[in-house]
Amino acid sequence: MNTLNSYPAHWQRHSSARRLASFMGYLALVSLFVYCWQLMTADTMWVFVLDAPQAAQDLASRAWPPRWSYMERLWSPLWDTLNIATLGTLLGIVLAVPMAFLAARNTSPIPWLTRPLALVIIVASRSINSLIWALLLVSILGPGLLAGILAIALRSIGFIGKLLYEAIEEVDQKQVEAIRATGASGLQVLNYAIVPQVLPSFLSISVFRWDINIRESTILGLVGAGGIGAQLMASMNVLAWPQVTLIVLVILLTVVFSEWVSAKVRRAII
């Protein structure tokens, strides 16, 4: 039987095995850091690094002031960028919502079949960056907005699908049981017990993804998928630094604006 005497005299938070393990963990982390440092310095040409402050100053002096007059050529690609992000997000939502319901353990209609299927789609979409989706799509569809919109949509399926299906799996089962007990059909249970519960998360996930998509769509132009990134690429290619400055400023403002909108909307929901 356990008596007070059978406890050790000194209290220790972790057993010695546990402490050894965590020490080994630290050791591994430090070794990794040292190794990475060596790797980084091996391929660095220190002449260029030492030169960096001067090079940066030089670039800055050539890039300033921004070429404000270039703005009139930016409105249209900026508008394209917003449209790519927004339409891409909407399309992503349309595709992600069914995926989420198919993937969630508690709503999947034929769990052994539909769950893995939906999960594969979600993982595939998540593991490929928008830029790579755009590269693929540009080579299939040719350059333009459509490739951008689809790239954003394809990437968003995974993000929205995953977060939404997790929200669905976390719904309060008591409400589900209560609606089922009234004799409601499966779809009715979905509509009355599950949808009201996941609606706030759904809205906040969607707005959050829209905000991310604004950022992502500003670079899609680099690979020809439309938007302001194309202007950035072109200006850099001809070393038109004052234009680059202006574009970077415009991108910055757009991103700040989208984050502000997204924060506002999410606060309103919660």
Partner: peptide, 14 residues
């Protein structure tokens, strides 16, 4: 199920 209504300890409203 409609014929035998159920009431729960935690009320289970939405």
């Amino acid at each position: 199920r409609a014929q035998c209504a159920m009431i729960f300890q935690q009320f289970n409203l939405v």
